[in-house]
Design a protein around this nucleic acid. Structure first.
Length: 420
RNA sequence: GGAGAGGUGGCCGAGUGGUUUAAGGCGGCGGUUUGCUAAAUCGCUGUGUGGUCAAAAGGCUGCACCUAGGGUUCAAAUCCCUACCUCUCCGCCA
């Protein structure tokens, strides 16, 4: 959420950034609504002032044991008028609040407008002496992922890991959590996978993207699309001490995505599934530190891929590609030779105070003694399903087996290969 | 799921319709005292929002805020309704 005062003081900037995002938000209508809202506030406050004053005269008369009837009639009239106007005002206020929640974040000035820009490429693509096979065929051959039965149990675009497949999934989670908590200074948290409406609103999934979310029918709960939601909301409606910052959390959760409307593209195998595992990194930082922290966050995520020895590239997302709440966002893509595609496995974003404002997450600034909104960031560190696609396809051997990446062997009883 | 008790400021806690302008305490900030520390003592103390003045820091002023949202009333922390949350007991349960 943007600060209404910021919007009023920077009308041009906000108008421009909406344009850069290709947003269809009716900004001029919103500004007019704000005007209207403020006129209401002024009018109601003036009437209330009158009401309060006359009311204390009633009190004084009662105290002096005099008859307050005349004054009561007077204040009755004002009171009636206030409730009439308030009824109208409530509509305006609600509409205003709703529209404010639908304005996307203002992109940072360094974010490209035209197209995503690759800022870094690392690792060499493997040269195969045979034609690389896709992960689906390899996994089925080794009997480590059973897509047929996951469809039976749940539906299409789910997965069922089995044997070494399940082990490697668990090994990856442990490897990433260990790396981030032991080497990168994050604290591990394990949150609820179901969250309420307020939490989904803080991080920006609601109100605009409710249709994209899995929702329970009988309770007002949502399945989390990412650990970002529960973990960012850990400090909702709280004031942190400046000394606590930065707070860095690493969190494993399953992630649930409806992916409606995406049928037909990348729907085979593990590339686009309704449920996958992810280790997420979330930071709460002082505003002046947030871009420095974004770089560190990105480096922490890249480290995972580097240790797994998979080629990757990093792109800054353009204003049009960037998500609703982000001010700046890097995507990490890894190569999958079997399907010959670059896959997004991580997205590292700085949200500025956008989420903090929606969730009322503040810190006490020691210098000014005031409460201020802090900045939130998060990044995948990293998402599992597509990572497994890339591992299977990059580490495949001609005989149909898979070599286990060195850093994972310790988590798999020292095993070096997955064979049939 | 059933029965009951609760939710008050950064924290504890008083307050059952009209100087509540939320007592008192703790904490925090500042002053005095002091060789230093501690103690004592005095003062100050939250958030949001509108208007206005100011280059700004901020000042002045109005309104709202006692979990949230409705309602009753001239007037609500206080009465009523609903939701959420916490606690106790019972039931069910990995």
């Amino acid at each position: 959420m943007l600060d209404i005062k910021f919007i009023r003081d920077n009308v041009e900037l906000v108008r421009e950034s909406l344009k850069k995002r290709n947003s269809d938000f009716d900004f001029e209508g919103f500004l007019a609504l704000d005007e209207k809202r403020r006129r209401f506030i002024k009018e109601i406050d003036l009437l209330r002032e009158e009401q309060n004053k006359t009311n204390s005269q009633v009190s004084a008369l009662l105290k002096a044991k005099k008859n307050p009837k005349e004054k009561i009639e007077e204040v009755k009239a004002v009171s009636r008028k206030v409730s009439e106007i308030e009824a109208e005002f409530r509509k305006v206020k609600d509409e205003f609040g709703n529209q404010l929640l639908n304005i996307p974040n203002v992109p940072h000035s360094s974010v490209p407008v035209e197209a995503n820009k690759v800022v870094r490429s690392q690792g060499k693509l493997r040269k195969f002496k045979f034609k690389p096979v896709n992960h689906i065929d390899i996994a089925q051959h080794l009997d480590i992922i059973d897509f047929k039965r996951s469809s039976k149990v749940a539906g299409s675009n789910f997965s069922l890991f089995k044997g070494a497949g399940a082990r490697i999934n668990r090994a990856l989670i442990n490897f990433m959590l260990d790396l981030h908590t032991k080497k990168h200074g994050y604290t591990e948290v394990f949150p609820p996978f179901l969250v309420n409406r307020a939490s989904m609103t803080t991080t920006g999934q609601l109100p605009k993207f409710e249709e994209d979310m899995y929702k329970l029918k009988h309770d007002d709960y949502f399945l989390i699309p990412t650990a970002e939601v529960p973990v960012t909301n850990v400090y909702r409606d709280e004031v942190l001490d400046e000394k606590q910052l930065p707070v860095c959390f690493a969190s494993y959760t399953a992630c649930f995505r409806r992916e409606s409307g995406s049928y037909g593209k990348d729907t085979r195998g593990l590339v686009r599934v309704h449920q996958f595992d992810k280790v997420e990194l979330v930071k709460f930082v002082k505003p002046q530190d947030s871009y420095k922290e974004l770089d560190k966050l990105l480096a922490d995520a890249c480290k995972v891929i580097e240790l797994l020895e998979i080629p990757y590239r990093v792109a800054v997302l353009s204003t049009q590609e960037m998500s609703f709440a982000a001010a700046k966002c890097y995507d990490i893509e890894i190569y999958a030779p079997g399907i010959d595609k670059w896959l997004e496995v991580a997205s590292c974003s700085n949200f500025g105070d956008f989420q903090a404002r929606r969730g009322n997450i503040r810190y006490k600034d020691k210098k000014t003694g005031k409460n201020a909104f802090l900045h939130t960031l998060n990044g995948s560190g990293v998402a599992l399903a597509r990572l497994i696609v890339s591992i299977i396809e990059n580490y495949q051997e001609k005989d149909g087996s898979i070599t286990i990446p060195k850093v994972l062997r310790g988590y798999l009883d020292g095993k070096r290969r997955i064979t049939k």
